[in-house]
Amino acid sequence: MSALDAGASSGPVSDAAHPRRAVDRLLAGNAWLVFAFLYAPILVLVVLSFNSNRIVGVWQEPTLRWYRDLLQDQAVLRSLKNSLIVAAVSTTVATVLGTAAALSLERFRYRGQRLFDGLLYLPVIIPDVTMAVMMLLFFVQAFDLILIATGTSPNLGLGTISLSHIAFNISFVAIVVRARLAGLDRSLEEAAADLYASSWQAFRRVTLPLIAPGVLGGALLALTLSLDDVVITSFVSGPGSTTLPVYVFGLVRRGVTPLINAVSVVMLVGSMLLVIASLIVQRQRND
């Protein structure tokens, strides 16, 4: 099918076939190289996390010791718990809001839609650092106002982290759900309406089941992003509300230790499982 195969086998230009095969081989070589580049560092990290030597780079013998230490590390466990709370809350809210935004933009036409559309894409492309600064200044200002109005002020913590994560996750969920909606046959929804289904019934019985893979895929993506975020979280977290990536980032800056290797591998495997689940779910066709 491909141009490369066609060129390599067609008769009249056979003298041109040799450079083509060479090109094809170069392409394959580059592919191997890139895949090795993408996966080798991860593999090395996984292997080294089982190294019993305290000097990470020098292999001694395999051990599970660092993983056992991890299970007893209170700071790690506490920040993991925080991460899970924030991820659960922000994913739930962002999935509902993101799906609603996707439906609204993809299925209806109204004035000001373009503006909404633009606003929805900004959180995806804005650099983390800028968004972190935005959220910090916003909460500081909002807390000042609350202090003036009520006499007491809330603190930075799990609440502000969750609110910030929702702000970027809405966009990611909306993009995934929109992609799904765009590929759907609209006539099914119209048929439901023709059969006197109320708009809620049509949504509940027809649209929602059809977009479910997109919604679930988006939710898993939101979960991953929430569990991964370092920069924004570190700006809007208060004392005692450190999440796992923020805690690990603090450790990493001080150097490489076997314990960080073990936490890293746990985080990596966790996020990979979520991604794979998300991809599988999104791939499902509606049969």
Binding site: I42, V56, G57, V252, N261, S271, L279
Partner: peptide, 30 residues
């Protein structure tokens, strides 16, 4: 899918992996 997996995997950890690899007593220096 093989391209997508690292795309969404934990960014901090993937960066940290290079810190391990490039360290003065690490595999790359070796």
């Amino acid at each position: 899918v093989l391209v997508m997996i690292p795309f969404w995997s934990n960014f901090l950890v993937r960066t940290y992996a290079w810190r391990v690899l490039l360290a003065s007593d690490g595999p790359m220096s070796g």
